[in-house]
Every structure is written in structure tokens, then in C-alpha cells.
Amino acid sequence: MDVISGKWKALLLWAIAEKPCRFGELKRAVPGITEKMLIQHLRELEADGIVHREVFHEIPPKVVYSATELGASLNKALEPLGAWGDAHITEISARRQRKASAISPGPESM
């Protein structure tokens, strides 16, 4: 679980497993991720052998991230988790909204 721990790693892996991506493409594919977290998670995924980083020595420099064989197998293992999330997103979102409504008082209570 440590390999995919954190809010962003699974999302990054799903994006990279779909097709090799450049840094900017990943930043757009995972809305809300900061540049610092993107760099940190990509380095960790690369160190764990999940992501391959290929540097093309050209002007301007080009770096492409892709899933390794190990990363592709991890992505395959995560597919049922993604399917579960798709099946239950509406219910979970509704519960979170109800909880948020119960915690924050409405304007009529002020």
C-alpha cells in the first residue's frame, strides 16, 4: 500500500498507464495536484520501479513518463478499486454533503 499511498499516486499511475505523458500533461490530467507533489510522487514512483522517466536530449528538453511492466501490473490490480469507486461515487458524495451540511450551520442560525 505504501507504493500507492497518498492522494495522487493512483491517479498519476492511471494517467500514465493510459499513455506516456509529459510533466505538463500529467499536471492537467490530475487537477488540484501541486507541482511540488507531482514532482515528489513521480520521483517516488520512479524509485519504486512503477514509472519510467525518459529524458530526450533536445532543445527544449523533453521528459516522458510511462508505466513500467511492474506499474502496468499494479494498475491492473487497481482496476477493481476504480470500478468500486465508479459504482459508489454518488452515494459517497451524498453522504459527504450531508455530513458537511450537518457540521456547518446555515445562515438562518446566525
Rank of each mutant, 00 (worst) to 15 (best):
R28N: 15
E46W: 00
W8V: 13
F23I: 06
A100C: 08
I50Y: 01
M1A: 13
R98K: 11
K7G: 15
L38P: 05
S5C: 03
V63Q: 02
G71C: 03
K99C: 15
I103L: 05
D86S: 09
I33G: 06
F56T: 07
A100P: 07
L26F: 02
I103F: 06
L12G: 03
E58R: 04
S73D: 10
P105M: 13
K7H: 15
E79T: 11
L42Y: 01
I4S: 00
A94E: 09
L12E: 07
K99H: 14
L78Y: 00
V51L: 02
P105K: 08
A83E: 15
G6I: 06
L81G: 10
H52G: 14
I50P: 06
S5Y: 11
H88W: 10
V51Y: 02
I92G: 03
G32R: 03
K27M: 12
P105V: 09
M37C: 14
Q97C: 11
R22D: 13
V3A: 13
K36C: 15
L26H: 00
L74N: 09
Y65S: 03
W84L: 15
P60G: 04
E54Y: 05
H41F: 07
K99L: 15
K36G: 14
L38M: 06
I4K: 02
E108V: 09
K7L: 15
P60A: 02
G49I: 07
G24S: 11
Q40C: 07
E18F: 04
M1K: 07
A83M: 09
E25T: 01
K27T: 11
P20C: 04
K36F: 15
A87R: 01
L70W: 08
L74I: 12
G49D: 02
K62A: 11
S93H: 10
L74F: 09
E25D: 05
H52F: 14
S73E: 11
E18W: 09
L13G: 10
E108N: 08
R22N: 13
V51P: 01
I92D: 10
L45Q: 07
N75K: 04
I103M: 01
T34Y: 05
L13H: 01
L81A: 10
G106Y: 02
D48Y: 11
K7D: 14
E54C: 03
V63N: 04
G49S: 00
I16W: 00
R98M: 06
E25Y: 03
E18P: 05
S73M: 05
G85M: 06
V30F: 06
A29S: 05
E18Y: 09
Q97W: 10
R53T: 06
A87W: 00
P80H: 01
A67H: 01
K27V: 10
M37T: 11
I59W: 14
V55R: 05
H41D: 15
W14I: 14
R98A: 14
E69P: 00
S66I: 07
R28K: 14
A77P: 08
G6D: 01
H52M: 12
A100Y: 04
D48K: 09
I59F: 13
E44I: 10
W8E: 11
W84M: 14
H88D: 05
L74W: 01
A47I: 02
E108W: 08
P80E: 06
A77K: 01
I33D: 12
S109T: 04
G82L: 01
S5M: 10
R98T: 13
H88L: 12
L42A: 03
